Simulated scan of single mutants.
Amino acid sequence: MAGRFVALGDSFTEGVGDWNAARPNGVKGWADRVARQLARQDPAWEYANLAIRSKRLRQIVAEQLEPALALEPTLITVYAGGNDILDLRTDVDALLAQYEQFVAALSATGARIVLFTGYDLKISPLLEPFRRRHDVYNDGVRRISAAHGTDLLDFWALTAYRDPRMWDPDRMHMSTAGHRYMTARVLDLLGVTYVPDLPDDDPERPGLRDALRAERQWVTDWVLPMFGRKLRGVTLGDDLEPRWPDPIRPADGMKRLARARMARLAG
């Protein structure tokens, strides 16, 4: 049965890592892919995506909650809080309390809600201090999901993401393959069959010298700039607008709709 799908959150839901210059904000992402598949089941499905990269939970609540409620969705996906975990000053208990208030407000609409845990991504010893906070946060999301009767996609448990090819070079966002796999998992949760196109061979394991070189390059290209932005109080999403703030009908053609949206953004 058709409905209106509204996607909320940060870079995970915006689609970062699934780069596509022909889509708004230069990304496609699992939510676009889910919306397209839903429209293939029923062309009357509508879709909006309010997510913007780098947003903290408080910003998602302030900027996305009221617009989402105004859209009267029947299906809502929420991924939020990951950027807060990377801020050492974040009080995780307070974060979870705000997250629960957010979920409660969304649940009151009667829409079907899908929540996500974060992935246990062992990308570097440099970020290991954040892991315990991540564990506490994920346990809180599971508890909140159960308390409010939402669906839960336990990203933490998806072993396919142990393959490094499922991740963008920054090691913190899914690659195109990762977004395709997430599409399949969300659709499976919704009762829609979708078989993603994924690597079917084993990933090549680099030697020690190449691994050390890659680690140094990753720190230079991604880690230092990320913490530099934190110190300056700026984010990659500061000058971006939501990709699909108003409902679209994916059955009308995502490429055509994307061209029209990008023209409006450019104008």
Rank of each mutant, 00 (worst) to 15 (best):
L127F: 05
A211E: 12
G9N: 08
G178F: 04
P164D: 08
E128T: 15
L240R: 14
G149I: 06
Y194F: 15
L71P: 06
T109N: 11
F102C: 03
G228L: 04
R256I: 08
R162F: 07
L115E: 01
N83I: 08
R232Q: 13
A111K: 04
S11P: 03
L115D: 02
V92S: 11
E204D: 15
A251V: 08
E72I: 00
N20S: 12
R58E: 13
P67Q: 13
L69P: 00
A108K: 08
R133C: 02
Y137E: 03
W244L: 08
R259C: 00
W218L: 03
T90F: 13
A97L: 04
A108Q: 13
R209T: 11
V141R: 05
Q217Y: 06
V92N: 04
P247G: 11
N25H: 08
G267A: 13
G267C: 00
V34T: 04
D135E: 14
P73E: 12
R89G: 09
L75W: 07
G191H: 13
Q59T: 14
V195Q: 14
A48K: 09
L38D: 05
Y47T: 06
T193M: 03
D10N: 08
L236K: 10
S175M: 07
E14M: 12
G207Q: 05
A70H: 11
Y181R: 15
F12W: 02
